[in-house]
């Protein structure tokens, strides 16, 4: 048993750290949102509110796990499992450090995109099987939003892939030794950031679960641990998007050598997690049709132009 790519110890540690980070994010987000709204946030349980996550977990585990009698039980039960496994499987291809990771795959970026598109089913099935109009509205919105933004997400990544010449995430990181891809691929980065927020349906693009309009959207009928799985999967998705941005545009584990590579990775990913929480605190939610027309009429042409220009530059410098 040693720390190398794909050993059981590494896989276990990665799972533990990812789920632990996602659970801690529940507290961290509430605390940061509090600070940004001139409040203090939860600070009563434990040292400066550090045990708030334990309290939340106890609450969510001991709640009644109710399945509505009118729901389609089969789809209702598997829906939270799909998104949980999809986001956790995506971490298989993330390179955390030179010798830490689950697999070294030649199709890493595509694998993440595939898992992201499978995650859409969870949201749709959850809303459809609840047999509730708010849930159905939420999952209709989720379906259209996720399918649309998958497109821009994929195209915005292709600039990075073209510069590296590989879908392998480790090769992408190693190709950034001379300079991070944020500089040549700035437009791709911005599009990926926006599409990533929309893909993990967090604020400001939380239109599928807009509390003020349609209760909680697709998970209106969920309670107890099933709701908990949706909830934690959203935070794991947040960690995933932050890790992806770190790997694809900010050089992954690369950094000055006074810190070990894994620490550099965590520092960069944490900065993006903080940025996403800041976006939640600061930016208002757009209307649904604004989101769609913004995506198809602005982001799609922009990402295509970005890809085209990148291709032209690569070809002309060869």
């Amino acid at each position: 048993m040693s720390l190398e790519i794909g050993s059981p110890l590494t896989i276990g540690l990665i799972l533990l750290v990812v789920i632990g980070t996602a659970a801690m994010l529940i507290t961290v987000e509430r605390r940061l949102l509090g600070f940004w709204q001139e409040r203090l946030g939860p600070n009563r349980v434990g040292w400066f509110g550090s045990l708030q996550v334990v309290a939340d977990m106890i609450k969510i585990f001991t709640k009644e796990d109710w399945i509505p009698p009118f729901a389609d039980k089969f789809s209702f039960v598997i829906a939270p499992g799909i998104i949980m496994s999809a986001v956790l499987l995506s971490f298989a291809v993330i390179p955390f450090a030179p010798d830490i990771g689950v697999i070294d795959s030649n199709i890493g970026v595509l694998f993440v995109l595939a898992m992201a598109s499978l995650g859409a089913y969870s949201v749709m099935l959850g809303g459809l099987s609840s047999d509730n109009k708010y849930a159905l509205l939420g999952s209709l919105r989720a379906a259209a939003q996720m399918v649309s933004y998958e497109v821009f997400m994929g195209i915005s990544l292709l600039g990075v892939v073209a510069l590296t010449g590989s879908f392998n995430m480790r090769e992408i990181v190693e190709a950034q030794t001379d300079g991070w891809y944020i500089i040549p691929q700035f437009i791709g980065f911005v599009i990926f950031l926006i599409a990533g927020v929309a893909e993990s349906h967090r604020l400001p693009f939380d239109i599928p679960e807009a509390e003020q309009e349609i209760c909680a959207g697709y998970h209106t009928e969920y309670s107890g641990m099933k709701f908990g799985m949706f909830f934690v999967a959203e935070y794991i998705g947040l960690v995933l998007i932050s890790s992806l941005i770190t790997v694809l545009f900010f050089g992954g584990w690369l950094g000055p050598s006074f810190l070990p590579p894994i620490i550099w990775f965590f520092v960069k990913a944490s900065a993006f997690i903080g940025f996403f929480i800041l976006m939640r605190a600061a930016v208002p939610r757009p209307r649904y049709d604004q989101l769609m027309s913004y995506g198809w009429l602005f982001l799609l042409p922009l990402s295509l132009v970005n890809l085209l220009v990148t291709g032209v530059i690569i070809l002309s410098t060869q």
């Binding site: 600070f35 940004w36 409040r39 800041l278 930016v283």
Partner: peptide, 13 residues
């Protein structure tokens, strides 16, 4: 907007 909200982190609550 993001900047104005961010500096609230260091202001009095």
């Amino acid at each position: 907007t993001l900047w104005l909200v961010f500096i609230k982190l260091f202001q009095k609550k």
